[in-house]
Amino acid sequence: MRYWLQRLGVAVALLLAVSALTFGAMNLLGDPLFNILGPTSASTLPEDLKIIEAAKAEYNLDDPLPVRYVKWGSAFITGDFGVQFSSDGQPPVSDLIKERLPRTVMLLIIAQTMAVLIAIPWALFAASRANKAVDKVSTFTSFLFIAIPNFGLAVILKYLFSLKFSIFPLIFNAADPFWSRVWQLFLPAMALALPVSAIYQRLLRTDLITTLQEDYILTARSKGVSKRNVLFKHALRPSLFSFVTIFGINTGALLGGSLIVEQIFIIPGLGSAIVEAILREDFPVVLAIVMIVTAAFVVINILVDLLYSLIDPRVRSA
């Protein structure tokens, strides 16, 4: 229990530190007023000064930095992410996030599903033929997959399957019905999933081989259980423990990868939102996305720990 409280404390401290750092850096290193008003922000004409005053009041720019941080933070917790730094401030940041986030999340879900669907059969296949020629080829293949950077794979998949052989659509259309959007996300998800599936496969294969050495597997075999049934019904489940951990860790890593892959397949998700916001120096948007990604990362890490201790009693008692 103490351990979990500690974990929670670290998580909250981390989120506070990240937000304070980001908020401070963005306000000190940039000029928010200029991002809102453009050249007018430096004008000294009386009518412009009125506009400047109004903008300062509207965006809370007159308060000292700590006050603004607290104002921003307390609004952020309630789901109000502020206004965009553009001349009209529309749409509010939370609306932008609401529009973009589901696409990134959907991409991640498809990618992880794919990775698991590839990795488990692949690992079962390799483990049941451990150290035979087929297994060595498969291990080498996994080595190749791990070395492909996801953006490189994304470009090659787009070239082969969208451009050369038009099997998959080139364009993501947010207005299309659900299943055609899933279809449009197939290639980007594949670009994320293949390298990760190789990581899963290597881990799962090792654990499966370990499990297959256990006495109870020998017992099952000598009782006449078929090889296939031993593999699926006796060996797979106990071999999944460390797989859960790495699955969680990779979800965090995939989140970063998805921002990049979205750029290549022109999917209007969080990736394109943060790139646009950085170019426009639109701090509230960058801040919101940084916070969401960090929070997701932290929450996933804690969930994995929790899940791990639920599955494996030995971890719980330790």
Partner: peptide, 20 residues
Amino acid sequence: FIIFLSFPALVLAILITALL
């Protein structure tokens, strides 16, 4: 180390390179 590892690496990279 824990603080650094529980922080998404890409976010830190984005932040620093976006600001500097």
